[in-house]
Simulated scan of single mutants.
Amino acid sequence: MAGTRTAATVAAIRTAALELATAHGYQQTTVDRICERAGVSQRTFFNHFPTKQDAFLDHATPCLDEKATRGFLVGTGPLLDDALAMITLPGAEDIARMRIVTSCPELLAAHVARMDAVADEIRELVLLRLRRDRTGTDSEQEQDAAMVACLLAGVVRWGALNTASPASSAPCPVTAARACLDRITSTDTRTNQE
């Protein structure tokens, strides 16, 4: 029961923060106003979120899906596809939140720092798989792992920006990213010549 109440409180705080920032901007959205809108005390707010930024970023930062990560480590499919499957991106319900994050330099910088931590974790996981599956020097494997982590960080950033775009109609950022990667890495070089 306490878990349900905690989840409801966290959701109320996030919703209040989002509604206020959408209406008044991030800078004008204070913790006091968020608490008033959510019907909680400042103490309750800070029990769940260390800072105002966290009320926006905790739900907007991509994370690694544990089951997909285990599958990646034992997987035998295409490395980039398997790595993409590890990432859980914010869903469609977070489009407004991503608009705020990408429009505020302070939030965007914090979001990028969190993304860097995820990229470091991905690099380590990719390196483990490369060492299992491929020959090559340690230096080559480390470079390859760093490249995959950078590519995935770019995919995540692209997905967030694409999701945050008002014109975006992509139902799932990972699906849209895969389709885009397929288009640009395709070996089909046909042109529209008549």
Rank of each mutant, 00 (worst) to 15 (best):
L73T: 07
L108A: 11
R131D: 14
K52H: 05
R134Q: 14
D116Q: 10
L57I: 06
V112R: 05
P50S: 13
Q53L: 12
T185G: 15
L127V: 10
F72N: 00
V112Y: 00
C35A: 14
T51W: 12
G71C: 11
G3C: 04
A113P: 03
E140Y: 12
P78E: 15
G3D: 14
R178G: 07
T175C: 09
L152N: 00
A23M: 06
V174C: 08
D54H: 13
I95F: 06
G3M: 08
R183S: 13
R37K: 15
R33E: 05
S168H: 06
T76A: 09
A164G: 09
T137N: 07
V156D: 05
Q141E: 09
R183H: 12
L128M: 11
G154N: 08
G77A: 14
E121D: 15
R33A: 11
E140W: 12
M115N: 04
N162Q: 15
I100H: 00
T185F: 14
P173H: 10
S186R: 07
A83S: 11
A16T: 06
R157F: 12
T61R: 02
Y26P: 01
R43A: 10
E66C: 06
S165R: 12
A12W: 02
A176I: 10
D94M: 03
I122P: 01
T61I: 10
L181P: 01
Q42P: 07
L80H: 04
C150A: 15
